[in-house]
Design a protein around this nucleic acid. Structure first.
Length: 586
RNA sequence: GCGCCCGUAGCUCAGGGGAUAGAGCACUCGCCUCCUAAGCGAGGGGUCGCGCGUUCAAUUCGCGCCGGGCGUGCCA
């Protein structure tokens, strides 16, 4: 659980507070409250290991108190008053416009390496989440057809986010919501029925409606059904035919979703069926609750939810004027259609109520395609309307995927059913590469997925760059083992032999691993993991080129071997969170 | 119209109040008698879309434009 970056930052905070106390006691500075200050890691190594802006942010407070102020002078006073003996720092200095830069003692670096080796695969784990019960719902692809590239991105994103949040101390549950009820299932039945009848009556006799599912997969399922039942249902009641087709095809589609996702190394804790919400009366219960709260009304034969009122109140409390709200064009939403069927929205409210109330999740995260963003405010608002807290429902909006082949955009048309499916993607691109690629950009950026690049097994492909670092370490270990050298525990003094810039920059990265995972959890951005993996691999490759492990000095050799093992541990850890393999040889 | 996301090197993208803005690809030139050259080093390449504001400090925050994507259903 050790986090050396945090320890260092906390210590600088204490050192600075103590220094302020000294200056106040001596009467050098007035005893006035100062604003919060940052301790950060400078991007430039010559600026030290940690840096604080305390002197610069204090200007306003001093001037307000009528004191003369110069940030560099104040920084110099703080530096002089800073007591560093017994801390993890050797010295500090004033730099630039008034930064105070701190320099770490060698024993800090030694402790980091030692901690990684002691904690092993647990290194990086923290208690940031405090064991909070969190659900991450992702992919939730429509079971009426195959998954597409957007689902693939959502899968890689949600799964890796879940893994990182687990490391950051959350109690994470992965869930797939199966939309096995409602309009699209009706449409599914209709489409299947048409395809089935076409087999026996010809395509011209039974035309496929415009709004039906056009994909080949529907034909395939109809064919499979026909192979079993023959033409025995051609003259059956239309509704009976559809029902039988749905009962036949839906489980097959769900199984296909499962197996495709498993190929993709994604396993869920729960596959939740929308239909259970209807069968158990949870949808009508939640509608009744909204009714009882006066949040509904009837119009044109349908039951409406007062979405505009809920969102309007929220915006008013945020300081919007009624005129501004007018221009937003807030609209109400239908819960029960005039035909008596509840909408998807109604089921979704019941579903999220179920997550929070029935199953007790403290926080729910949904990974959605950006094309669903219009749904975000109203579902969160609906939670508020039910007396829950919409802020506990976080939606990660993921921008769409643009496929490139031969450098040209590869058009995906859902209507014609010519989307690239997840299973055809796994045929073409190794899973390691695909998972890595999908997590290379943050969710908010549209992603260009270059099919040719991802399929390449050359250095162009960043996933191999990282895996290669791991393979090289394994190779070193193997070589040394052949020479009769086995890794042993090093003393602090021995680890302090690691002093070269190439060695120290690796250790800085190792120390930052726990915080990186916390940032992923905070920002819902697993792309930081691939970036980190690339950075660590880069640092290692540089080390590899400038330092040899097989050194004549036994102590230094062991220290470097320890460093290699620490890198191996951390690379394996981040790759395992990404569910990318770490080959021992390439 | 309104809402959300994006605009940083030729291309794909990081960074996210701080000190000289980064990486990969592509281009040029070096480095294997030595733990894997799927690697490393050096070089060129930028008004961080434009303008105004907040701040000691803005590529980063706010507002307004411009450009691109996506929404704006009794679809999901």
């Amino acid at each position: 659980m050790a986090n050396y970056d945090k320890l260092a930052k906390d210590e600088i905070n204490e050192i600075m507070m103590a220094a302020l106390g000294v200056l106040i006691t001596k009467g050098d500075i007035p005893a006035i409250p100062l604003p919060p200050f940052n301790v950060e890691i400078p991007s430039e190594v010559s600026h030290g290991d940690f840096s604080t802006n305390l002197a610069m942010v204090s200007g306003k407070a001093f001037k307000a108190a009528g004191a003369r102020f110069n940030p560099r002078d104040f920084a110099a006073k703080l530096c002089a008053a800073a007591e560093l003996s017994g801390t993890m720092f050797t010295h500090c200095e004033v730099a630039g416009p008034g930064f105070i830069n701190f320099f770490l003692a060698p024993k800090w670096y030694a402790a980091v390496v030692n901690t990684v080796l002691t904690d092993k695969e647990a290194y990086g784990r923290s208690n940031f989440g405090g064991g909070e019960k969190v659900m991450i719902e992702f992919v939730s692809a429509n079971p009426t057809g195959p998954m597409h590239m957007g689902n693939a991105r959502g899968g890689a994103l949600g799964d890796c986010l879940a893994a990182a949040m687990d490391m950051a101390g959350f109690d994470v549950s992965r869930e797939f919501y199966i939309n096995d009820a409602g309009n699209q299932i009706e449409k599914f039945g209709l489409s299947l029925a048409v395809r089935y009848l076409q087999i026996y009556r010809g395509e011209d006799a039974v035309p496929l409606p415009e709004d039906a599912y056009q994909g080949e997969d529907i034909k395939d399922r109809a064919k499979e059904f026909a192979d079993i039942h023959g033409d025995s249902l051609v003259n059956a009641d239309e509704n009976e035919l559809r029902r039988q087709l749905i009962d036949f095809a839906l489980p097959k589609n769900i199984e296909k979703l499962k197996s495709d996702l498993e190929l993709y190394r994604i396993y869920y804790d729960v596959w939740f069926r929308e239909s259970t919400l209807h069968e158990d009366g949870e949808v009508s219960a939640v509608i009744d609750t909204l009714k009882a709260k006066g949040m509904t009304y009837e119009k044109d034969g349908a039951l409406w939810y007062k979405n505009a009122e809920v969102l309007g109140k929220k915006l008013l409390s945020q300081g919007k004027t009624p005129d501004e709200m007018e221009s937003l064009g807030l609209k109400d939403d239908v819960l029960i259609r005039a035909n008596g069927n509840p909408t998807y929205f109604a089921a979704d409210i019941a579903y999220h109520y179920n997550k929070f109330v029935k199953r007790g999740f403290k926080r729910c995260i949904n990974v959605w395609g950006a094309d669903h963003h219009g749904h975000v405010a109203r579902i969160k608002g609906a939670m508020d309307a039910l007396g829950l807290d919409g802020n506990k429902l976080d939606i990660v909006l993921m921008q769409l995927v643009r496929l490139l082949r031969d450098g040209e955009p590869y058009r995906m048309s859902k209507r014609s059913g010519k989307a690239i499916t997840l299973s055809s993607l796994t045929d073409e691109v190794p899973v390691d590469a695909a998972r890595f690629f999908f997590n290379l950009s943050s969710p908010a950026s549209t992603l260009d997925f270059d099919l040719d690049l991802a399929a390449k097994t050359t250095s162009d492909n960043p996933v191999y760059y990282v895996q290669y670092a791991h393979a090289r370490i394994c190779s070193i270990i193997k070589k040394l083992a052949g020479d009769g050298v086995t890794p042993r525990t090093c003393t602090e003094d021995e680890l302090c032999l690691l002093t070269l810039p190439e060695e120290l920059s690796i250790i800085r990265l190792l120390a930052g691993y726990p915080d990186m995972l916390i940032e992923v959890a905070k920002n819902y951005d697993p792309a930081r993991m691939t970036h980190y993996a690339i950075e660590l691999a880069t640092a290692f490759h540089k080390f590899y080129n400038s330092c040899r492990v097989t050194d004549e000095n036994e102590a230094l050799m062991q220290a470097r071997l320890n460093l290699c093992l620490a890198v191996k541990t951390t690379v394996c850890s981040v790759l395992s969170l990404l569910k990318v393999s770490a080959p021992e040889a390439m």
